[in-house]
């Protein structure tokens, strides 16, 4: 599909799928009327369209984070990219871009809460844990929402916030850390991997209601995944195990975030 066809579809279809008003209208789309009348080809409309095309080609999406909002939305998609740049067929979230943004979100007084949206297949352990620790140590309320998937190293990021949500159909794959395709020959290597795995397991146990034992049990379970050991937990199951706080979507997540922001404002007034 060409970009022009995509744009036409964009102007026809409503942006959100819930039938509700979009929470944050994208700054690029706002000035342009959805359908530009053919007889008055306005310069402003063309300009806006060009900007949308630019945004799509540059970021692969039509909207970018808005500064005026009091919440900061962070999306973690595709592979979490760390020290090694992945080949271009991967869609990646680069941690060196996210970390200063989280610093800015913490420091900026206009930002009162952070919404983290996850749809990731995993990635670099170091980078993933770095993001998770940053999210966990923000003093402002953070609500995480797992949409689609929050697999592997996405699990610690998903549990790092003040409150976590998972969409009903979203899944999280919990499996051991190992070097795929390589034979582990020496005991030291295995111990090293085991230590890395403990870092992840400890973090998850500390930041969610699941116990270390139960998480390891899910991680090492056989007969659930076809090509691997581990478990695939879907929506309500993740809540049942105590990994995630609640099943819900965007509306619930934003409501909870606003509630936490109000609560924090109240605490500030008391002080």
């Amino acid at each position: 599909m060409s970009i022009n066809q995509y744009l036409q579809q964009l102007s026809k279809a409503p942006i959100n799928n819930n039938g509700q008003e979009p929470e944050q209208p994208a700054p690029q789309t706002a000035p342009a009327p959805p359908v530009v009348p053919a007889e008055t080809p306005s310069v402003a409309g063309d300009e806006a369209k060009k900007r949308i095309v630019d945004t799509i080609t540059q970021l692969g999406q039509t909207n970018v984070p808005q500064l005026e909002s009091n919440i900061y939305c962070l999306s973690i998609i595709g592979q979490v990219e760390g020290h090694i740049q992945l080949p271009p067929q991967n869609k990646t979230t680069k941690y060196e871009h996210l970390i200063p943004q989280l610093v800015a979100a913490e420091q900026n007084s206009k930002i009162e809460g952070v919404l983290v949206i996850l749809n990731t297949v995993g990635g670099d352990v170091e980078a993933g844990l770095a993001i998770a620790e940053m999210v966990a140590s923000i003093s402002k309320p953070v609500v995480t929402l797992v949409l689609g998937g929050g697999h592997s190293i996405g699990v610690p990021i998903a549990v790092a916030g003040s409150y976590s949500f998972i969409a009903e159909t979203a899944t999280m794959t919990i499996h051991p850390i190992r070097l795929t395709g390589l034979v582990i020959g020496v005991p030291q290597t295995f111990e090293y991997l085991d230590k890395m795995q403990d870092r992840v397991v400890n973090f998850i146990a500390r930041h969610s209601k699941i116990t270390e034992e139960q998480f390891k049990d899910l991680m090492l379970r056989t007969g659930e995944l076809t090509r691997d050991i581990g478990t695939n937990v879907i929506g309500a199951d993740a809540v049942k195990y105590g990994l995630i706080d609640e099943v819900g979507g965007l509306g619930k997540a934003l409501n909870k975030l606003n509630e936490l922001i109000e609560q924090r404002r109240g605490e500030k007034v008391l002080q």
Partner: peptide
């Protein structure tokens, strides 16, 4: 780097040596 993902390493790192 430790790679922890559900995506097979062969797919993620395909064309890795051809990265310009």
């Amino acid at each position: 780097m430790i790679f922890y993902s559900i995506m097979p390493q062969e797919i993620v790192f395909a064309n890795f040596d051809q990265m310009n």
